[in-house]
Amino acid sequence: MQYKFGGLAQRLIYWNVACFLVSLFFYDFAVGAFRFPNWIALSSDPLVFITNPWTLLSYAFFHDGFGHIFFNMIILNFSCTLFLTFFTQKQLLGLYVLSAIFAGMAFVAGYYFLNLSASIVGASAAIMAVLVATTTYSPLMNVRLLLIGNVKLWHITLVIVVIDLMQIRIENTGGHIAHLAGAFFGFLYIKFLENGTDWSKIVSNVSDFFVNLFTKSSSTPLKTVHKNYKKPETKSTSRIVVKDKTQQQIDEILDKISRSGYDCLSQEEKEFLFKAGK
């Protein structure tokens, strides 16, 4: 029920946890560490990366240990909750996916020029993008923290970014490069959005294409039934057509709720559904 009606933030957490459970099959008890194959982890080796391009996204759903995923999911839930205060679930999905790809490319490019070789997993870069995007849009938002009290959102984000900058040459250099790249993408996303360009529509259009591809056949008979009701030049026909169009819009809204949850509706759709239910 939480997965079905909890919204995209809940689903992202479930997807990450499910991938972590799968990753347990790659745990090497002899060395006490995960050994992710090249078709899951993002490798900085150009030859490996080119033959496994999907790893630009798959790496953002796997984690190297319980502590890694535990803290990432806490920050993901926190960041998504704030982000959805201002934006839609489709924008959240688009930002998560595109920032993961951008950060992955930054990691590969950075290690290539540094002449280093490694592989990474983790949702941290995408999470940083969501957090920084929200901060860029509303930096003065008050956030209440346990034992600390109210602080500004930009204070929290600044601390996290500074920690990444301080550790970039100490350990996990590739991971910190990806984190900072994700943060930069989140900043750019909001700036372009404020100028009327929504990059998340790239992901939305792709996902809508596949959704419509599988639902097209089921919607065709409904259109045929509507055509059978049409009788030109009579008042009764006019009333039936209006009724059918209203019902069709209600069905489309209900179908949208079943796919993405009630929160994905626009204010206009919510008002229409409320009036139709009277």
Rank of each mutant, 00 (worst) to 15 (best):
A41F: 08
L93A: 14
F66M: 13
L140I: 00
L82T: 10
L84M: 13
I74R: 09
G110S: 15
N115H: 10
H63F: 14
A33C: 00
F49S: 05
A103E: 12
H68W: 06
L82C: 09
L116V: 07
L93H: 02
A125E: 09
A125D: 07
L145W: 06
R35Q: 14
A33S: 14
L84D: 09
D45R: 05
Y59G: 06
S43D: 14
A109E: 03
F87P: 03
F62N: 02
L145D: 04
R144D: 06
D64F: 06
S44P: 08
L153H: 05
N72H: 15
P37R: 12
T135H: 01
K152L: 11
Y59V: 01
M73F: 00
N77V: 04
S58C: 02
I40H: 05
A60S: 15
L95H: 05
L153K: 08
F66P: 01
I120Y: 07
K152E: 08
V108H: 07
A60Q: 05
F107Y: 15
W54N: 11
V130M: 04
G67S: 12
V121F: 07
T85P: 02
L153Y: 03
W54Q: 13
L116N: 06
A100I: 02
S44D: 10
G94W: 10
F62G: 00
A125I: 04
I75T: 13
L147M: 10
T51S: 07
Y96M: 09
L82K: 12
F83Y: 14
H68S: 14
P53T: 08
I69H: 01
F107H: 04
Q91I: 00
I127W: 10
A133H: 00
I40V: 14
L146D: 10
I148Q: 11
I127V: 15
I156D: 06
D45P: 01
S79V: 03
V31F: 08
A118R: 02
T134L: 09
T85K: 15
R35F: 01
V31Q: 11
H68P: 01
L95G: 02
F107W: 10
A118I: 00
F70I: 01
A133I: 10
H155Y: 15
W54P: 03
I120D: 03
V121C: 08
I75S: 04
M141S: 12
F62Q: 01
K152Q: 11
I50R: 06
T134S: 15
W154G: 01
I156N: 04
L42E: 04
S119T: 08
A41Y: 04
S138H: 07
V48M: 12
S119Q: 10
F102Q: 04
S44M: 09
Y111F: 15
T81L: 09
G110Q: 12
Y112C: 01
A126T: 11
L158D: 00
F102W: 13
H155W: 15
Y111T: 01
I69A: 08
I148F: 15
L92D: 06
N38E: 15
N142M: 10
